[in-house]
């Protein structure tokens, strides 16, 4: 072996740095994408608290203008 590059050991059960396949990578990406959407959708669907709507109503009525 003179030029420095050794092939990975065959039969090694754990090769930590072996890249996963592109297809497997896409599956992981898809799973993360679905989880992100589920996370966000659950939050976005929560009802708006009254205090926020009341705040806007007060602002619009001019009650909170320059306090």
């Amino acid at each position: 072996m003179t030029n420095g590059r050794t092939p990975p050991e065959a039969g090694s059960s754990h090769a930590p740095c072996e890249p996963i396949s592109v297809e497997a990578g896409h599956k992981v990406q898809d799973a993360i994408g679905r989880a992100l959407e589920a996370h966000y959708v659950e939050l976005v669907r929560e009802p708006i608290p009254d205090r926020l709507l009341e705040l806007l109503a007060k602002l619009e009525a001019g009650e909170l203008r320059h306090e």
Partner: peptide, 19 residues
């Protein structure tokens, strides 16, 4: 973020596999 999140979730993802 995607790579780090995959690692944290135990779904390893290498940069080479990123679309």
């Amino acid at each position: 973020a995607r790579i780090r999140l995959a690692d944290l979730l135990g779904l390893p993802l290498h940069a080479e596999a990123l679309p």
